[in-house]
Amino acid sequence: MFNININENEAREMLQQAIDERVEELASERYWLTYKQLSEYLNLSKPTIDDLLIKNGMPYFKVGSTYRFKKSDVDNFMNSITSHMNIMNNDLKNLKVK
Rank of each mutant, 00 (worst) to 15 (best):
E8H: 13
Q37H: 05
R68G: 04
E8V: 15
E13W: 03
S45E: 05
L44F: 08
T66Q: 12
L33D: 00
S45N: 06
T82R: 04
T66W: 03
N5Q: 14
K93A: 05
W32P: 11
M58T: 01
N86T: 07
M78L: 14
E10I: 08
R12F: 09
A11S: 12
L26C: 08
Q17K: 12
K98T: 10
M1F: 10
N94R: 03
K70V: 00
L95V: 11
E10R: 10
N76T: 00
Y41V: 06
S65R: 15
T34K: 09
I87C: 11
K62V: 01
K93D: 03
K36A: 14
D50L: 07
I49M: 01
L42N: 03
V97G: 00
E29A: 07
L38G: 01
V97S: 06
I87N: 07
R12H: 07
L42A: 08
D51W: 01
W32C: 05
E40A: 12
L53E: 01
V63A: 04
K70N: 14
L92S: 03
L53I: 07
Y67E: 07
N94S: 08
Y31S: 12
G64H: 05
A27F: 06
S39W: 00
V97R: 15
M78H: 06
K46A: 00
S72P: 00
F69R: 03
L33P: 05
I81M: 10
M14A: 15
F77L: 11
I81K: 12
P59Q: 09
L92G: 04
